[in-house]
Amino acid sequence: MLTRRAVVGILPCIALAAAVPARPAAAASEHAEAARAFLQKLADSTIEVLNKKDLTTPQKVETFRRLFADGFDVPTIGRFVAGRAWTKATDPQKATYLQVFEDVTILTWALRFEQYSGERLTIDSLREEGKAVLLESSIVRPGKPSIRVDWRIEKGPQGYKILDIVAEGTSLAIAQRADYSAVIQQNNGQFDGLIQALKDKRTKLRQQAKLE
């Protein structure tokens, strides 16, 4: 049964589909529409922060920490990219790892955004895959070809969260999982080897961000 909210939710999608004739209009559920609204809001708040030129780097990192904690399902991503080592890790190891992983990811994004120069996010289409909503978007860059980016979003107890970002067909989570799995292998299968490597990375990134 179509509720009024669902009908209202479908309207922007129809408008969107009409604006992009090359893509077939996907029947977007209320669920998918809510995921779209969530991502658009997150992108808007991020760009708002990026446009505040007077923020110091520590202030920016702090703001990103809040945005990131809100927007991303850090425990799930951390668990996934840790790969098989996760199943054997002790609880203290898991806790330390997730903390360092979050720090490294936030610093990485904060530094990445230093190069921000007016990019915008347009959401092109929505697709559901099991529990997940996949949003296809374009990062529109002034004077450069746009980048195709897919977002994997799921609804959890704390609302919508991003699980993965797929840029031009390459999944960040899968690449990171390959990276971490190689690090664990090089450390004779020791999860602590990865934790130490991440701590070293954190120190390096903090220096680059001039936090140390």
Binding site: T170, I174, A175, Q176, R177, A178, D179, Y180, S181, A182, V183, Q186, A197, L198, K201
Partner: peptide, 10 residues
């Protein structure tokens, strides 16, 4: 990345 080689491979 931490392991540049493995990341490029993926």
């Amino acid at each position: 990345s931490i392991d540049f080689y493995a990341t490029v491979r993926s």
